[in-house]
Computed example of a mutant assay.
Amino acid sequence: MRKNQKIHRNRWYEISLADGSTKIVKGQQSIPAARKKYKNQIRAIRRISLERWNQYQESMYGKYLAFLDLEYNTGEEPGIPTEIISVGIVVADRKNLKKKETYYSLVHPRINTTLNPYCMELTGLKQKEIDHARSFAEVFAEVEEFYRKWGIRQTYVYGNADSPVLRNNAELNEIPDKVTYLTDGIKDIAEELFLSLFDREGSISLEKLGRVLDIRLDGEWHNALYDAELLWRCHSAVIHKEIPENLLTQAKNELALKEIYMQNRRFDEVKSGFPEEKKAVTEEIIQELRKAAAPKSMKETAKLLALCDDILVLTGERPRYQKEYTELI
């Protein structure tokens, strides 16, 4: 995406209608749709400031917003539901993004009550902790009170999984209408943050985003409150332009290399049956190839890495050379 396209996408416009009301849209690409929707009703269209946009957001969604993360226990067998086992929330002032309060709770699953080994390793949670946790209905009744306390009408999440999982869990626990206060206001900001940083569409994991922005927190990944705090910090850093330029430049270069690398990879499925003695010889050939090629540009380097990893895959080994060049992404 070109730089000027990105700039126009991040501008805001106020549309004055014949009945005296106003509508606010984001980005020039929204104006044709608005002209069609309000045909013969538009009196004027004018660009507005970030301050005016923030005032509009506050009037629509309240003074405070929430950053939410959920952790789940996935089913290992077909038909076993994915159930929420913990919830973390950070409440921040919409205007200055200062943190106001946090919320964290474990959740006892209704059906899939035994944590699978992968889930325990990922989250650091123990089975006995989940066994003594409160039910989904109890926890989210408390979350609802927490939201009412702060007048929360908009919730930021990272990725598109939390909203459907939350809805499915509400249905599973027979209280689908009890979480509409939360699900109706959920907004996935993963692509928005990516666009703001890299001037193009796409996304990376929250963990990688934290590395690019050089944000370090006490705690462990995949704790629901830790991830909610990290999302809040990343969003705040982007909004306040607290972005380490050296790391951002490195990340952009790594993304470009990875893109060329992926375009030139030909084999994904690791083969089997290749003799072990020939694997060692193949490894030597790969190293000789890398020395002889001596790429002089990022494009040539990416193509060479793709070729070397394809050779590994054909011999029954997993690809690994591209990872040598990507510390952040």
Rank of each mutant, 00 (worst) to 15 (best):
residue 97 L to F: 10
residue 218 D to K: 10
residue 73 N to Q: 08
residue 168 N to C: 09
residue 302 A to S: 01
residue 40 N to Q: 12
residue 11 R to F: 08
residue 54 N to V: 08
residue 320 R to E: 12
residue 158 Y to D: 01
residue 267 F to Q: 12
residue 286 I to A: 07
residue 13 Y to P: 06
residue 105 S to C: 04
residue 288 E to F: 11
residue 28 Q to M: 10
residue 197 L to C: 09
residue 180 T to M: 09
residue 286 I to H: 05
residue 32 P to I: 06
residue 323 K to Q: 12
residue 11 R to L: 13
residue 254 E to S: 05
residue 309 D to L: 04
residue 54 N to Q: 13
residue 115 L to A: 02
residue 222 H to D: 08
residue 290 R to M: 15
residue 242 E to N: 11
residue 152 I to C: 10
residue 256 A to I: 07
residue 293 A to L: 09
residue 240 H to D: 13
residue 236 S to P: 08
residue 302 A to K: 01
residue 36 K to G: 02
residue 77 E to A: 12
residue 316 G to K: 03
residue 216 R to H: 15
residue 173 N to I: 00
residue 106 L to I: 07
residue 190 A to C: 11
residue 21 S to R: 10
residue 203 S to H: 04
residue 14 E to W: 01
residue 172 L to W: 05
residue 153 R to S: 15
residue 64 Y to W: 08
residue 166 L to P: 11
residue 119 C to P: 12
residue 158 Y to M: 03
residue 96 N to Q: 03
residue 251 A to K: 02
residue 188 D to H: 09
residue 14 E to G: 00
residue 20 G to A: 01
residue 137 A to V: 13
residue 6 K to F: 11
residue 89 I to H: 01
residue 327 E to I: 06
residue 96 N to G: 03
residue 92 A to L: 02
residue 84 I to V: 14
residue 325 Y to V: 00
residue 107 V to F: 02
residue 153 R to K: 15
residue 289 L to W: 14
residue 67 F to R: 01
residue 245 E to V: 15
residue 152 I to G: 08
residue 289 L to D: 10
residue 70 L to N: 09
residue 109 P to C: 04
residue 113 T to W: 06
residue 136 F to Q: 03
residue 197 L to A: 06
residue 182 L to E: 08
residue 37 K to D: 00
residue 84 I to S: 08
residue 328 L to A: 06
residue 197 L to H: 03
residue 10 N to P: 05
residue 107 V to M: 02
residue 298 M to R: 12
residue 29 Q to V: 10
residue 149 K to S: 11
residue 12 W to H: 15
